[in-house]
């Protein structure tokens, strides 16, 4: 699938002090592609996801979004970030704002929409994630699964070109995982470009165009999901899959 590249990483290296967390990463994500990043903890997959909108800086290499190199911290970077939606493991909804205000805030402050217009769009999105009735509650009054769906709506409200998911279901109780995955499945079907760091192998199998397997800061395999799950090439991937798929 060598269509229009939306995200390009070339020779990306990152260190935390001595620790070399990203080693010569090359990765291209095309428009409309769903790329799932999996790997053992500490393999650098979350860090990789966070470098794409420069929440983590890199020491060397190049990251391009829609052809544009990521700028330094400042207005230009802020503008570029508004094109990249992000969903976090710990939801990170604004605790002092209601659900509706959470979804509207970025539209008003960043996109410059009028409040009424933003609120209307927010309600549509909340409807889409099944939470229209919770609009006036505060985040602390919602379950984890509901909070994460609000967080997805908040990111979508910016009309992003791509969505990054950094372990979106890892902090959820098991019975709430599906409600979040269903929203993500729907997004994938609608053609959204997505990079998803996750441990949900079912989601990787059913929704991903490609699976990127990372270990020790490197991309070890980058293949179609069916190939990867049935015929992993590297020892590292075989070992990883044998541990998680047995039970």
């Amino acid at each position: 699938m060598a269509v229009d590249p939306l995200i390009e990483l070339r020779d990306v290296n990152k260190y935390y002090g001595e620790l070399h967390v990203l080693q010569d990463i090359d990765l291209t994500v095309g428009k409309g592609e769903v790329v799932v990043v999996i790997g053992p903890s500490g393999s650098g997959k979350s860090t990789l996801c966070r470098t794409i909108n420069r929440l983590e800086t890199i020491q060397s290499g190049l990251i391009r979004l829609d052809g544009q190199p990521l700028p330094e911290e400042g207005k230009e970077l802020a503008r570029l970030r508004s094109e990249v939606g992000m969903v976090f493991q710990s939801f990170n909804l604004f605790a002092h704002k209601t659900v509706l205000q959470n979804v509207s805030m970025g539209q008003v402050k960043v996109r410059g929409r009028k409040k009424d217009e933003a609120d209307q769009r927010s309600r549509e999105l909340l409807e889409r994630v099944g939470l229209a009735s919770q609009a006036d509650k505060y985040p602390a009054q919602l379950s984890g699964g509901q909070q994460q769906r609000v967080a997805i709506a908040r990111a979508l409200a910016m009309d992003p070109k791509v969505m990054l998911f950094d372990e979106p279901t890892s902090a959820l109780d098991p019975e709430m995982i599906n409600e979040v995955l269903e929203v993500m499945q729907q997004l994938a079907r609608d053609g959204m470009t997505m990079v998803v760091v996750t441990h949900e192998m079912g989601f990787a199998r059913s929704a991903a165009n490609r699976v990127v397997f990372m270990a020790d800061g490197r991309v070890v395999e980058d293949r179609a999901p069916e190939d990867f799950f049935t015929h992993p090439e590297s020892e590292r991937a075989k070992d990883f899959l044998s541990k998680i798929l047995k039970h």
Partner: peptide, 27 residues
């Protein structure tokens, strides 16, 4: 204020001053 609050604001494209005045300082 948890760092995630500021990260979420920045990931939406808010500038430093918007993040500080709209999300971090009120909390």
């Amino acid at each position: 204020v948890p760092t995630g609050q500021g990260e979420a604001a920045r990931s939406l494209g808010m500038t430093f001053s918007q993040t500080l005045s709209g999300v971090v300082l009120p909390q």
